[in-house]
Amino acid sequence: MKRGASVFNRVVMALVFLFLYAPIFLLIIFSFNAGNSNMVWKGFSLHWYGQLFHNRLIMQSVYTTLLVSFLATLIATVAGTFAAIGFYAMRRRWRSPLMTINNIPMMNADIVTGVSLCLLFVAFFGLWENFAVWFNSFGLFRLPTHLSMGFGTMLIAHVTFNIPYVILSIGPKLRQMDKNLIDAAQDLGCTWMQAFWKVVLPEIKPGVISGALTAFTMSIDDFVISYFTAGSSASTLAVTIYGMTKRRVNPQINAVSTLLFVAVLLLLAAVNIREARQERMAAQRQS
């Protein structure tokens, strides 16, 4: 009986992994296909990867993706770090509900976040147009009346959905920190800001770096939110791939998707290895 159950468990597990990973492996294998079919193997080739680097649209989106991810990570990490310290300094009565509010966007469906941000931007542009027209009537200098979605709005959106991840990864580090450290630094001659740089930041640095890596990963592979906030002038890699699938199936998609998969995989591995190492060090410190 027990043995039967265990065989059944293994079969189910195998099926789960098959359905999860088989499509990805197929995609990776056919990205090296010499022919332009996704079903017939015509031999190994790096042809599609080569094509990729001559595709201006894709190269442009890679650049956009990296830039928006990098900037969003930078801004979100700085903002998230200070927000986390703010949470930490709060009384528990306020901190718990606010942390819940912080956590909701991470659970929230991307499509809801994307559409709501899109609506917000459109509404803001409407108000801005009225304001700009009114302001320009004074003739001091001209404000642009017509704004549209693009790189800027997408960046704002990425910063927005990244901040909660940064806060979440720094919070535990702050709670582990001896709360007298800040007082001690001030006692020894630091202003608050000096205490932050000299004492708090070195203590929470592992959390800040994990938070930044997580944020970067989230930004790189985001599709839904970018799709709704990028407008027509900017396009990330994920949005470009989606666009390519709508026209005709081009094996370049396989190649670029493989690269994206590998990039995200490496980032996730980096985050996990860091966390494992920290846990080991924390365990050592305790013993």
């Binding site: 007082d183 001690a184 001030q186 006692d187 020894l188 001659g189 000299k198 070195p202």
Partner: peptide
């Protein structure tokens, strides 16, 4: 606090974990 001629020994010491003994005292 940083302008008072008063220094404090805190409960549970509050030594800076990332600095060695010399740098803690020299802080």
């Amino acid at each position: 606090p940083y302008q008072r001629q008063i220094n404090t020994v805190f409960q549970k010491y509050a030594l800076f974990p990332h600095l060695n003994v010399f740098e803690n005292i020299a802080f």
